[in-house]
């Protein structure tokens, strides 16, 4: 493996600086965001690198659990932030964290104990990257689908209520919006699977090849990851949309948009 020096990273950073300068010159209003996002990448990844270094040297299931909880909390906050009309109070937070916990953690656990079977199963070298990739993708899927669900429920309030007036139950009345929301949440993952290898080389596989792994091994891991991500995102999105679509109504099948923050 070819080790990267500080100057190598500086060259890549110079490209970002050039882009920021161009954005400032053409008044695109992206300069600030670009710089903040780049600094966040730098600080967050360096910190994770340091934590992983310690964790790899002394594998500890409690420390691993703590890190997993921090990752889940950060992902839940992000899901909430990406929605235009999230649920009020702790409900929104609980819904996203619960759905991600059920899907990502279950799929990661299954992969670690049944497929990879490393000893110990919680070996951080496998557990953290796997959970990270699953959480990241599930987070995007859940955020997209919940945003679509609440926005469409808001926009199509009259249609939902007209269906209720004709005697449909709440889940039938909102069924078309649920389908669209699930599709919105799953489409990026399905597209990634459909174009993998043809349009782009997936990031993890590219990373492994750059780090010196045999291409066939990297491909096998990438297939595993893509399948796990799709399953995790699918289960998580399904869970979140099912619970959210029920919570949008009360026990008398009335549409309760007052539960959403506007």
């Amino acid at each position: 493996m070819i080790h990267l020096s500080f100057y190598d990273l500086l060259i890549a950073a110079a490209l970002i600086a050039l882009l920021a300068t161009l954005s400032w010159h053409y008044r695109l209003g992206l300069t600030g965001q670009l710089i903040v996002a780049s600094l966040r990448t730098l600080v967050q990844l360096l910190l994770v690198g340091l934590i992983l270094k310690v964790l790899f040297e002394t594998p500890n299931i409690w420390l691993l659990t703590l890190i997993a909880c921090v990752m889940l909390a950060a992902a839940s906050r992000e899901v909430l932030a990406r929605q235009k009309y999230p649920f009020k109070g702790w409900w929104g937070y609980g819904l996203s964290s619960g759905s991600m916990f059920i899907s990502s953690f279950t799929v990661t656990l299954l992969a670690l104990t049944v497929i990879i079977e490393n000893q110990p199963w919680y070996s951080p070298q496998y557990a953290i990257p796997l959970l990270g990739m699953l959480l990241g993708n599930t987070m995007t899927g859940i955020a997209l689908s919940l945003d679509r669900l609440s926005s469409d429920a808001y926009r199509q309030k009259n249609i939902i209520e007209q269906r209720l007036m004709l005697g449909q139950n709440s889940q039938t009345a909102i069924h078309h919006i649920k389908s669209d929301s699930l599709r919105a949440g799953l489409m990026p993952t399905i597209n990634a699977m459909a174009t993998a290898g043809l349009v782009s080389l997936p990031g993890m596989m590219t990373g492994q090849i750059l780090a010196g792994s045999p291409p066939v091994e990297a491909v096998k891991y990438q297939i595993l990851i893509l399948f796990l991500i799709t399953a995790g995102t699918g289960f998580g999105t399904l869970c979140a949309v099912s619970i959210a679509s029920r919570h949008l109504f009360d026990e008398r099948h009335r549409l309760r948009l007052d539960k959403l923050r506007r």
Partner: peptide, 19 residues
């Protein structure tokens, strides 16, 4: 149940909508 009730008591709003 609410759907049973609304089958018996049907509301036609001032502005009907279609899907």
């Amino acid at each position: 149940t609410a759907p049973q009730w609304r089958c018996k008591v049907g509301l036609m709003p001032a502005t009907p909508v279609w899907w």
